[in-house]
Amino acid sequence: MVSPETPGSKVMGPLSTTPAVAGHTGGKPARMSRPRTAGSIPADGDARTAFWLMAPALALYAVFTLLPIVATFWLSFNSSAGFNTSASFVGVGNYAKAAQDPIVWKSLVHTFIWLAYHVVMAGGLGLLLALAVSRLRITQVFFRTAFFLPHLVSLAVVGVIWANIYDPFFGLLNTALTRIGLGAFTQGWLSDPALVLFSVNVASSWQGFGLYMLLFIAGLQNIDRSLYDAAEVDGANALQKLIYVTLPGLREVMTFVVSLAMINGLKGFATVFVMTNGGPFYQSELITTYIYRLAFQSQDHGLAAVLCILLSLLAIVITIVFNRWRARLSR
């Protein structure tokens, strides 16, 4: 892909750090050029090389991301019972159907509650454990690893484990409560409409907090020690150091963790699918589980596509709003 260099080469090679110099171009305005160096690539070659180097990634991106996005938009305006059927154009019919479907609204509310639970429980626990673990000297690596381990377990497996923990008759939780004399607190963790979303989210957050904890630990390690020394000199106690030094020092990490937790929260699916399948009576139905149900059980691909678009918009809007809010706060 390297072409012979000609006088007046236009741009710099990709790895060159040498400033370009003006060259003669026969009365025309001087173009940027750079000194001839062995192995340097001319401009056209650069573009072509760059294109071919990126082509596989671009092709994969087009096939697996862009095309599905386009197909989803197309599907959302069509009535389709599956990939083998002919779709018929219904305009905004699927959007109207979504707006009138009470389960869509219910699952939307549940998705927001789920998201909030995830941010608070997984993010909050991650922060608390990071604060605790970062104080340890000898056992820090052990606890860091131990707390991160659940994150390595598949969400589907986590769902099966926790469904057994929550079993009202044989489950670990109710059995333990009964054994320690707290039998009055036993619950139908997955059958009580008021509890089910929380219970499933505990399982999901248990799987997720390890990653957030590691991010917070990394953030804590970046806080300048001298700030703590100064605070101590000023007579700050532990709580004051936490509020005035640690938390402000974690601001950037916290923004990242909360954004990540919100996106992960919106994507919540596997644990709900395994543990309750959206039940009982839609009490744990999320947008994601309803999309699955519509697309693969009812074969209503048009309505499922509308909900996919809604979910994507939610993720975009929530992330933008949150980051703007954070930016305003930090000004």
Partner: peptide, 21 residues
């Protein structure tokens, strides 16, 4: 029929029967 059974799947309910509970 206990309300809590709404949280059981086939395996969980079968377990209850196989264990004669």
């Amino acid at each position: 029929i206990k309300k809590e059974m709404a949280g059981l799947d086939l395996d969980g309910a079968s377990r209850l029967w196989f264990n004669k509970r």
